Simulated scan of single mutants.
Amino acid sequence: MTDIGTEPVDEPLADLVSALRAQISPRGDLAPERVLCDQLRVTRHMLRKALKILRDSGDLKETKSGRRAANGAGGTPSAATLNQKRMVQSTNPFEVMEMRLMIEPALARLAALRASPDEIARIVEAASSAPNMTPSEADQAFHRAIAAGARNSLASELNYLLHCVQTDSRLRFTDSDADARTTENRVRERDAAHHAIAEAIAARDPDGAAEAMRSHLAAMQMKLMGRLGLTGLETG
């Protein structure tokens, strides 16, 4: 049994909650139930139990239109949303990349060791950008699938918060998040890097997965520095 919020739940349900949390889009919403059931290969009953846990924990709420949205996506800002805004105001893209380089190779390593076959299948599928997503949404879907597969709820939450800060509009001048500047060639290059990570995870190669993730993020960091005309880590 696993504790989520105040009540223990069985491991399959806990895994589903983690997978759904990783599916919350940068806009703060989830796909329709039918799509989620097909994608996650679960029954509607099981899905609704997991959605209730997310609502009860404050991660998800219903908007007036009935659409599920992440907490803080509308109405009065939550404390978590206000904290996120403060973090955005006090940070910069270089700090975000430094933190991603610290956290995400470790998550890739854990995913190679712990991810279930279904979670690995989702990681491999997300390595190819979905046509119905923007480039930044597709990128985040892949990295969140890895975080879910790592099966460390605290690390997954930290990674989720980090990506929320990165995707805030005030940080969208970074090369990795600017959809308007993302060409088809850049998407292909990114997908190739994602596939290298996914293949290492699927092969249960923790060292290879961590190194592939590190190389991918380091390349993103170098592109960011080049775009801003920096030759070193002079971020002041």
Rank of each mutant, 00 (worst) to 15 (best):
K223C: 06
A148K: 04
Q221Y: 10
G66H: 05
A203D: 12
V88T: 14
S78P: 04
R100M: 02
R21L: 04
G58H: 02
M99S: 13
T231G: 09
M46R: 13
G66W: 03
S136A: 11
P131E: 09
M87R: 07
I24F: 02
P12L: 06
A106H: 15
F173K: 11
I146N: 09
N71D: 08
N71Q: 04
S25W: 14
A121H: 01
L228P: 04
E184W: 08
A193D: 07
L161R: 13
R55K: 04
D118Y: 10
T43W: 02
G208V: 09
T134P: 01
S169Q: 15
A192N: 15
A196F: 10
N152S: 12
L60C: 15
M97N: 01
L110Q: 07
A70R: 05
R67Q: 14
Q89N: 01
L228W: 09
A73N: 00
H216F: 12
I146L: 05
D168R: 02
P131Q: 11
A115F: 07
G229N: 12
M87K: 13
S176D: 06
I201A: 12
A106R: 13
I53C: 03
E234T: 06
S129A: 10
Q23Y: 07
P105G: 02
F94Y: 14
E119N: 00
I4R: 03
L161K: 13
K223F: 05
Q23G: 14
V17I: 07
A203Q: 12
M225L: 05
T183M: 07
S176V: 10
L217Y: 05
G236A: 13
A150E: 00
F94V: 07
D118G: 15
F94P: 00
A150H: 00
T6S: 10
A22S: 13
Q39L: 13
E157K: 15
L230K: 14
D15K: 11
I103F: 06
M97H: 06
A111L: 11
A126K: 03
I4C: 01
R27H: 08
R151W: 03
E125T: 10
N152A: 13
L154E: 10
T43S: 07
L224H: 14
A203E: 15
A22G: 00
D38Q: 07
N92A: 08
R151I: 10
D175V: 11
E119I: 03
D207Q: 09
S176N: 15
A141S: 07
C37V: 05
S18E: 08
R122Y: 13
N185A: 11
A19F: 00
N132A: 09
D168I: 04
T63I: 02
L51F: 00
S156C: 04
F94Q: 05
D3R: 12
D3P: 08
P206I: 05
A192W: 12
L16R: 06
M133W: 08
A19M: 07
L82K: 06
A180E: 15
R34C: 03
K61R: 05
A121T: 10
V88N: 04
E104W: 03
L36H: 00
N92I: 05
V124Y: 03
